[in-house]
Design a protein around this nucleic acid. Sequence first.
DNA 1: GTCTATACTTAGATAGAC
DNA 2: GTCTATCTAAGTATAGAC
Lengths: 192, 192
Amino acid sequence: MTKRGPYRKGETKRAEILQAALEIFAEEGYRGTSLRKVAARCGLSLPGVMHYFESKEDLLVQVLRRRDEVEKERLAELTGLGGSLDTLREGMRTPGLVELFVSLAASAGEHGHPAAEFFPRRYEELRAMLTRRVQEAMDEGQFASPIPAERLAVLLLAVADGIQLQWLSDRSLDMRTPVADVLRLLKPSDGG
Amino acid sequence: MTKRGPYRKGETKRAEILQAALEIFAEEGYRGTSLRKVAARCGLSLPGVMHYFESKEDLLVQVLRRRDEVEKERLAELTGLGGSLDTLREGMRTPGLVELFVSLAASAGEHGHPAAEFFPRRYEELRAMLTRRVQEAMDEGQFASPIPAERLAVLLLAVADGIQLQWLSDRSLDMRTPVADVLRLLKPSDGG
DNA sequence: GTCTATACTTAGATAGAC
DNA sequence: GTCTATCTAAGTATAGAC
């Protein structure tokens, strides 16, 4: 039987385009990559690609969105906090994707920009998820701090994002260490 | 007497252009702002502006560079760690400048891009400065942690940067809290 | 609904005159 | 040092074939 149910017609093609874009961005960086190039890899013309997306920015955001969905599945399986934060970056280990992520994050404040819809929601969800896991860790006595879980979630997310910025400038930097370090600061045994 | 000494001819005009760019970016965001617009504010044509800069990206980076020099002077006056981290962001409190900063940081890994020269150096300097101040605080007993000062510097910088990413998506977020929170985690009295 | 061809518009870059 | 004119690349919009 042909694909029906949850998949509308054309969804498979759209996914194919996003996949092609993802690959090109990962290989050559997303800057200096025109949509015509993405189209060529799919054997399409530019308007052929634009049939599936409202604008270039829309396509870029959907690349991230797709990436996120894959991550989310993995995150759902995990319960640990360290693993969650690591997973947040694992899908972003290629420079091209990190560049795309950071660059679009810069547009999250522009009204009408697709990123302005994506990022606030994404951050909300991530903070909520992290807050739960921090709270769990505190309940279990793994963490101890007078700072409420919500604020620690903001803090942890900031570390995970911020280290990526530094990593773009210095790829020899290990991205796991800072995350591990904050978590260590939260361990009761490490207090003065 | 006319300006001589350390200032070459044309430096004043270059500064004027950077100032105009800074203002426009602060007012309207740097995206969607063409160089022709910047040129117009200076009473110049596009080539008139390009005479002073190798490319648009070059101009953008120099806007950040200029901003940084102003910050550095303030930073030199401070000795406290919290104040240093706060100052790092105060010059970046307008969304347009934060967007510019984040967006260019995304290009720091591209060889040949002006940002690839600016950001690694900037981060190096900031980490060195923060390392010194963290070490001082530890020596004075204000902080206590088995984690070495260098790594804490990376961590603190990540928090300061990362919170800006979240801020772009949610401007109601207070950027000082997370920085204050990490510093609090480092205080010996807060251990479990 | 899917896709091509074509044309439009903007923006950064460059050449050469003054 | 600055302009006019021009070039090129890229995103966008339209018309229409299938």
